[in-house]
């Protein structure tokens, strides 16, 4: 058993305080301690992108951070993207409509990564979408429908339509 520290942070807008082992990764903290299992763990060494979360609004691999390093920061996971329990985020609606997921394993990382992209660049080209998700591996749907969904969501967001 290694040492533990007290941390307090914001997760999906909610204040969280916990005692964690210092060697616990942020991904395991989210999944095991907070039971936010929407954040998926594939490779656990930064290659697959499934565990991507937003750290103070910037995308990051939650498997490549310690939970103690999130102390004082704001984390958004895939569970925090939808505005409320009845309504999905425009990206999530577009993913459904464009069949941008099959097994759904890569989807949380795709959605968080693309949330950052569309915030910084509301009108991306297909090539820019492809580059943005170059760090996210999908092994079943293929990327075309993910790109289509992103462009659809971007259009809806630009028009101010919720979904």
């Amino acid at each position: 058993m290694s040492e533990t520290r007290s941390i307090s942070l914001t997760v999906n807008g909610r204040a969280v305080a916990a005692d964690v082992e210092v060697r616990l990764t942020l991904a395991d903290f989210l999944r095991q301690n907070l039971r936010l299992t929407g954040t998926h763990l594939g490779c656990e060494h930064g290659v697959c992108g499934a565990c991507t979360i937003l750290l103070d609004g910037r995308s990051a691999r939650s498997c490549l951070m310690l939970a103690v390093q999130a102390n004082g920061h704001a984390i958004t996971t895939v569970e925090g993207l939808a505005p409320n329990a009845e309504q999905m985020h425009p990206l999530q609606i577009a993913f459904q409509e464009q069949h941008a997921l099959q097994c759904g394993f890569c989807t949380p990382g795709m959605l968080t990564t693309l949330t950052e992209l569309l915030r910084d660049n509301p009108d991306p080209s297909a090539a820019q979408v492809r580059e943005a998700i170059s760090g996210n591996l999908c092994r079943c749907t293929g990327y075309n429908s993910i790109v289509d969904a992103t462009l659809q969501a971007a259009k809806k967001l630009r028009e101010g339509v919720p979904g």
Partner: peptide, 9 residues
């Protein structure tokens, strides 16, 4: 160098 998600950190 890597991807946006890794360059952020």
């Amino acid at each position: 160098v890597g991807h946006r998600q890794t360059r952020n950190r």
